[in-house]
């Protein structure tokens, strides 16, 4: 009897202490990343965002929560049609990114995500945002790539952006496609720095490569 009580007591104690250490953080985040990947509505994403908000308010030194909060908010916009509605989610993603960039201004993944948010913003209203963000997007993606040449997302987004521009001007897409190929091989070879590091983008890069006829 006493043993059982002791055992339960230990389990409870263990569970409660675990909440404070890093494994709890990693596990909690990993669980959310699984949910993030399987989300198929804006509400699903909102549930992930809420949980990550809770994690973020405790783990203020970590960049992952804020990164994925921005990433999930950005993905929420794809579930809406009306551009004003979509812009609200981009604003939300931007707000999370702004906070993250204050603490991690030179983080390759965060900069690449910023480039992605701007790309979507331009696609929503090219007449208004095209000139404002097109140059800035190229610049920040180049910076993301320079900070970490092994970041496949920086190479992929840069390739995608260059591809669109080259096509628009009827120029050769060779350079853009080279970037996409580079991204594809980086997706295969680059090892993530930690278990929570972003992994997305490979599928897009592969279909982009197909477009390139490579």
């Amino acid at each position: 009897m006493k043993r059982i009580l002791l055992f339960i007591g230990l389990v409870v104690a263990f569970l409660s202490t675990q909440a404070q250490d890093n494994t709890a953080y990693t596990e909690a985040m990993q669980a959310q990343l699984v949910l993030l990947d399987s989300a198929h509505s804006s509400d699903d994403l909102q549930a992930v965002i809420n949980t990550m908000e809770r994690i973020a308010q405790v783990e203020t030194a970590q960049w992952h929560p804020r990164y994925y909060l921005a990433y999930a908010s950005l993905h929420q916009n794809f579930y809406f049609k009306e551009s004003a509605e979509r812009a609200k989610y981009l604003d939300k993603a931007q707000a999370y990114l702004d906070k993250a960039l204050v603490d991690f201004p030179q983080h390759s993944e965060l900069l690449a995500l910023q480039g992605f948010v701007w790309m979507i913003r331009v696609s929503l209203d090219p007449a208004t945002y095209g000139q404002l963000y097109a140059g800035k997007t190229m610049e920040i993606l180049q910076k993301a790539k320079a900070l970490n040449p092994n970041n496949p997302r920086a190479a992929f987004l840069l390739g995608q952006m260059s591809y669109g521009t080259a096509q628009f001007f009827g120029q050769s897409t060779e350079q853009a496609c080279a970037l996409v190929s580079q991204a594809v091989s980086l997706y295969e070879t680059a090892t993530p720095t930690d278990s929570l590091a972003p992994k997305w983008g490979k599928k897009g890069a592969l279909s982009m490569q197909e477009k390139c006829g490579l």
């Binding site: 909440a19 709890a24 909690a28 809420n50 949980t51 908000e53 809770r54 994690i55 308010q57 405790v58």
Partner: peptide, 10 residues
Amino acid sequence: GANVYLKGTY
């Protein structure tokens, strides 16, 4: 979709 939580915890 409101977020309800205990402050300073997950």
